[in-house]
Simulated assay, not measured.
Amino acid sequence: MTTHQAVVLAAGRGTRLGTITAHTPKPLLDLAGRPLLLRTLDALASAGVRHAIVVVGYLADRIATALAENPIPGLRLQLVHQQTLDGTARALALAAPHLRPEPFFVTWGDIFVEPANYQRLAAAIASADGVLLVNQVDDPWAGAAVYVDAHARVTRIVEKPPPGSSTTPWNNAGPAIYGPWLWPFLHTLQPSPRGEYELPRAVAAAIQSGITIRAVPVEGPWFDIGTPESLAAARRYAQSQARGIVHP
């Protein structure tokens, strides 16, 4: 099974980054000379994607200009505007009418991983309804706790669990491949306690209904660029890679 389409969720501002995103949307923050969003689109293209939908909101005109000025060979781009920033599930639903009825990548405008991880997701989708990239942490309270069985099948996802309550080291790393089976779960999703329609909650409901999703561990570092500290760490790593420094 080959996945030729993708959605990149890139509508948010990144308020925890403060003044850093006052005039630059988070997906366009520079990493060693290339904006994060362009790095992500490069990676998707290398994994076989030919059509990518970018969901934009905050400073959408800046993103549109950057994409127009930096075309990626072989990749057709399409922008969809999220007028009300009410969650990632609603953002993804906006892209649904523009996708073919087949599997599609979903990734986030603030996640930075090595490009090979997208290729690994594409290879893994043949044995499941969906695949989800996961990273190992001490406590997944800041993201979503992902519980897996002995066969790497995801059995449960708990969004924003209380600190110290999780019995799994796996965190939802963000990038995934889902299929048209996801749309009904988006349409029936209720807002979270935070008042947003959150994509991981829809995926969790799909798993409970019997959809098979397999976990694919991240290879290499994982950066969620949501704070000045995580941005600085991602920049250090990207710069070291540009200089040819090999990391264990």
Rank of each mutant, 00 (worst) to 15 (best):
M1T: 11
T3P: 00
H4V: 10
A6E: 04
A6I: 07
R13T: 05
G18A: 06
G18Q: 08
I20S: 11
T21M: 06
A22G: 13
A22W: 09
D30Q: 13
R34W: 03
L37T: 03
T40K: 06
L41D: 06
L41C: 05
A45W: 01
G48M: 07
G48K: 08
V49S: 04
V49C: 09
L59P: 01
A60T: 02
D61Y: 05
E69W: 00
N70P: 02
L75Y: 04
R76G: 09
L79S: 02
V80C: 06
Q82C: 10
D86N: 13
A89H: 01
R90V: 02
A93M: 09
A93T: 05
A93V: 03
L94D: 00
A95E: 08
H98K: 12
L99G: 11
E102D: 13
V106I: 15
D110Q: 04
D110I: 01
I111H: 03
F112M: 11
V113Y: 02
E114W: 02
P115C: 12
L121K: 05
A123Y: 03
S127M: 12
A128P: 08
G130W: 01
Q136H: 14
W141A: 15
G143D: 02
A144V: 02
V146G: 03
V148Y: 00
V154R: 01
I157F: 01
P161K: 03
P163C: 07
W170P: 03
N172V: 07
A176C: 15
P180V: 12
R194L: 13
G195S: 07
V203P: 01
G210R: 10
G210I: 07
F223W: 07
T227Q: 09
T227C: 08
P228F: 08
A233G: 06
R236G: 06
G244H: 04
I245W: 08
V246I: 14
P248I: 11
